[in-house]
Design a protein around this nucleic acid. Sequence first.
RNA 1: GCGGGCAUAGUGUAGUCUGGUCAUCACAUAGGCUUGCCAAGCCUAUAACCCGGGUUCAAAUCCCGGUGCCCGCACCA
Length: 500
Amino acid sequence: MKLDELYALLRRRGFLWPTAEIYGGAQGLYDYGPLGTALKRRLEEAWVSWFVGRSPDYYRIEPAEIVPEAVVRASGHLENFTDPEITCDACHATFRAETVLEKVRPNGIDGLAPAQIEEVVRSHQVRCPSCGSTALSVPAAFNLMFDVPFGVARTERAYLLPETAQASYLAFARMWEVGRKALPLGIAVVGRVYRNEIAPRQVLFRLRSFTQAELQIFFDPEEPPGHLGSLADEKVPVLRAERRERGEGSVELVPARELVAGGLPEFYVDHLVHLLRFLRDVLRYPAERIRFFEKSDKERAFYNRLQFDAEVYTESLGGFKEVGAVHYRGEYDLRRHAEGSGKDLSVSRGTDRRLVPHVLELTFGVDRNLWTLADVLLGRDGDRTVFRLPAYLAPVAVGVFPLIAKEHRAVAEALTEQLLAAGIPAEYDEASSIGKRYARMDEAGTPFCVTVDGGTVGEGPEHGTVTLRSRDTKGQERVPAAELVARLAPALRPPRPSGS
RNA sequence: GCGGGCAUAGUGUAGUCUGGUCAUCACAUAGGCUUGCCAAGCCUAUAACCCGGGUUCAAAUCCCGGUGCCCGCACCA
């Protein structure tokens, strides 16, 4: 579907709508309605189950959404707010761009975009003032944080959290104790973050307040987490940076073992495959719509040693869009916060080693994936509109209908109560024709519909049975009502990782 | 942030150029009759000119400002 059509459908059905809609809306802010809220919760649960559930040493925390200025100063978010920086990829030193470029641009660099500053650096063969290397890069200028006057007198400066990852870095020291000093240590956050985006657009794809699900895995590079094992033959759809630079833009399906043989660390490939399986097998994006886009040295943030963005092809947004990523961030973040806080964030390993743990970051945009799921799984099938969500993601698991309202209402309502009591999200509907009720449920993504009819309430052989209708096949079968819970429950649990 | 386009019931729309009936039609939603397993039919009802100012006897229509959405550029730390 086109963007406008998909958005109208999601609005009409109460998945989401603009914040402060009656006042004309607010750029980059959307509210989730009943169906959207439920879908988002299930998406988050599925992510937690798949990623945090992978190891007993992975923990989920819930941080505050406001951080003191010192935090964003140490993380590098604040400095970039005002002055573009130049960083040296060789010695990791950081300088103000204006200072480094003083000689070649005596008039300053005001108004230049980071990419243009980088062009100046390259064309003048500028060298690192510290080590003399020409491997300089210019991180994009950051000006997107919401600042918050803090304290009763409003004299302290604080910021709305711009990325959940920072909260995990802040929690590392405490979690090192809580997790009883084990590496790898995983710290996951599913939470709201805030960025004052210059041009919010495309509904859920660039928001000013959105939800990230991120898992930071702190590990000892000598004992990295993850072994391919049985997943070594899994074919990964990759778009390698090197091939792109040669002008070959097509996706290759490369077995995981070959990516390792080609030089990528095994633990990194392991997590790429794990993410691939989540997108393909848990969220059910068609395999051909998924690709991993490798960012080159120049494209990725300087602190990332490796970066593959997970992208999914969307029709409404006209191409592959980033929905998640795997970043190997090295020790950059803990080192910065150790410097900023004055706390030693290195840990001891064995009897005579200390190290600052490295970080593997798995990121997942919850809102973006909600949109992408709708884009990919919500569509027309003949004259009906069907949202083919996996059952465990569906906002409503079962629609319960009386075939004839006044005759079957009581039994159908009682059945709805039984399902709800068993923890199955059920919704009763007696309005309009049976076909229209099925259609409404198809649109909402409800995988199952149960209809109470004359057979159910009669004394014949069908007594106590109902029809169970499948959203995807439209097929029906008669099932004893008493068996519904046992029948449906397994399909409603999100998959957990296995076999890796 | 710059440039372009757009804004009419819940949804999609007609009307705007050329100001002048009660703002068109379909679907939707609610109630009733009928039917009784895939958006059926009939009757009734609900419901809109994005916001603010201006011009005019009269503004959905013309002008100004704002807000929002889409597209391109830039940005995406």
